[in-house]
Design a protein around this nucleic acid. Structure first.
Lengths: 360, 360
DNA sequence: CCATGCTACCGTATCGTTTCGACATTTTTC
DNA sequence: GAAAAATGTCGAAACGATACGGTAGCATGG
């Protein structure tokens, strides 16, 4: 009886409101928007009609007519990673404050998924997008899939994304410096064999962190041992695999530096499985702090990125560009802080191997 | 020079494509959609024009004309809680598979924020929404803010949301049963004083979990002690506060049951701060398992909800309704599992207080 | 008294699609 | 070989909102 017509009720339109209030549509529209030139009496009359009918303007029609949607979008690589949800919250906060809506896409580190979202955003005619590319995505093709929609990159950059015209801005941290400081900290504790588990170097972000690590090593007259730099996929599993790899070799490192939070977790799991004590046997230094990091035992020392601020800044840069406040493309590098907790201590004493003696 | 006209390039339209291919717009449209009635030669000619111009259909215009958007939306109370991001992923997976797009809103447990999202979804004319209400939201008002857009509730229900016409479906777990089983488990270990930290009882979900807890107690001829049931705000801080409360009283419980994951974390933190050993001094049993739960020491025993499946089912129910496959409203209760790990053991022996003797 | 300037409205073109009926062609059928 | 049917393409009318030009009505001023 009821199922024959699945979508029965039409949405109420501005015309319904106009009819109900006994005025023309243009007056209703004027009353809703730039409220000038409509008398107070008329305004309340229209308002009551709107409320009685539960009228909501159709943003599809609105966007079509206006040629803008007051909407920005973001693609993140992994929504279950709290680092990215924090960025999203920053985005949301800024966008909400200036009356923009945020659309969210989760590419799950797959370039194809990412393109699907970018495409969808393009078809929805969002006013701009902030992009945190998937690791296997190339940096350039924004323009191809997004047309003339402005893009700002956050957190991850490609070699091209800074200089070329593909984006209108990028915001993140000074990765080389952060990694340099972190490695120096380990060095200062006395570590000489420091492993690094990093993300794919196709992403500039990871490459820069490696560069910072290398520079720190060199600043202590140490050379970087290629066997101790492992690259994984930024996930827990990958971090776990590479940590096992690192820790089961005869001359295992006395400290491990992981360049993101998931891999840090994986490494911690590996250490636990191997029945090693952290930090007594191995020190662990992570990246991308998270709110429950202090619940872990040991509490992990990490370099913290100001994720929420990254989001806010990205939103600001993007919206400024959209509204033409400044046509310039801009780069923003926010400061990181090393959260010293308990997962790092001086390395265990043991006879130095020949190789170690040589390099120290 | 360049800043005078902020958004210079118009988007390419179907008319541009038609002109480029030397055909009419209707032919292009036919070629893009129900591909019948257009010759192969014509189709490729149009296709190359589309690719050359990077044409993307305007979904605003499309939705306006079609009166549907192939889009569903979800409001979750807290995107940084992995339980909800898992639900979102389930939603995304199902929706993506049947070619729907998902819009995501994060109410951060505030009813006003939630309404803002619901409103925004309404104005965007999404085809349906799945709602996980904020704790301080009443259950009924969906219709008021969403008009005729169908809603399915997930995870959290209100007294009204099941029976009344406010939703077209609801999917979650059998909360009473899950809490009953969990409490029985603690009882089986020998616990007699079991504290519970629950969410606000305005949400049926929390009330049902309390009911399950109470029933389990009564099944062991124990009465529920009002001092041992604490209600918090579902956040880490609240769980922490109530756990401290519970654990610093003279006749402290030997076990604590938390009805969501954040409060479990807060309780764990409280236990650590109080220098109590878990499970030696207090057993801890949580709700809503998460992927890094095994990294915590002790590994926490939790009742796991099939979050991803909840999402998938909610999406299925909603989309089935939208497409009129079945006009019936439906309820789905998925099974939970108790993940037994190391945070629960028999209670410490100690002289029973007078009160305890009486109740056992 | 007419030109002018307000105020408070209204009619209509437009945004980019899809749909539907119309219209040529070509093919099939008696 | 003509009628009927199928095929391939096009023109025009929506969808719901906003912007723009128009237009009454009235007051003001020289």
């Amino acid at each position: 009886m009821r199922a024959k017509r699945p979508r029965p009720r039409r949405h109420v339109t501005i015309r319904d409101v106009a009819r109900a209030a006994g005025v023309s549509v243009s007056t209703v529209s004027a009353s809703i928007n730039h409220t000038d030139y409509v008398s107070a009496a008329m305004r309340t009359r229209i308002q009551t009609a709107i409320e009685r009918l539960h009228y909501r303007p159709n943003d599809l029609a609105r966007g079509l007519r206006l040629q803008h949607t007051r909407t920005i979008a973001v693609v993140v690589p992994d929504l279950s990673n709290s680092f990215y949800t924090e960025i999203v919250q920053g985005l949301e906060d800024y966008a909400g404050a200036v009356n923009y809506t945020l659309l969210i896409g989760d590419s799950r580190e797959r370039a194809t998924e990412e393109s699907k979202y970018l495409d969808s955003f393009h078809r929805r005619r969002v006013d701009g997008v902030v992009r945190i590319p998937a690791i296997d995505a190339r940096g350039v093709e924004s323009a191809a899939v997004l047309g003339s929609i402005p893009v700002v990159y956050a957190d991850r950059f490609f070699r091209t994304s800074r200089v070329k015209k593909s984006g209108v801005g990028c915001v993140g941290v000074n990765n080389a410096e952060a990694a340099f400081d972190a490695t120096r900290y380990l060095l200062g504790l006395g570590h000489r064999r420091i492993g690094i588990i990093m993300g794919p170097a196709t992403v500039l972000t990871a490459a820069e962190r490696l560069a910072g690590y290398s520079r720190a090593l060199r600043s202590s007259r140490l050379s970087v041992n290629a066997d101790l730099v492992r690259v994984a996929d930024n996930q827990m599993l990958g971090g776990h695999r590479e940590a096992i790899e690192l820790l089961t070799r005869p001359d295992r490192p006395t400290a491990i530096f992981c360049t993101n939070n998931m891999m840090t977790l994986g490494a911690l799991q590996a250490i636990q499985e191997l029945k090693l004590k952290c930090p007594k046997h191995v020190s662990l230094l992570g990246f991308d702090d998270f709110y429950w990091a202090t619940l872990l035992r040991p509490r992990i020392t990490m370099v913290r990125q100001p994720a929420r601020e990254i989001g806010m800044t990205a939103a600001r840069v993007l919206i400024d560009f959209i509204e033409g406040h400044n046509g310039m493309k801009s780069e923003h590098f926010l400061p990181t802080t090393l959260m010293v907790r308990e997962s790092c201590c001086p390395p265990p004493r043991r006879p130095l191997s020949a190789k170690e003696r040589r390099s120290s």
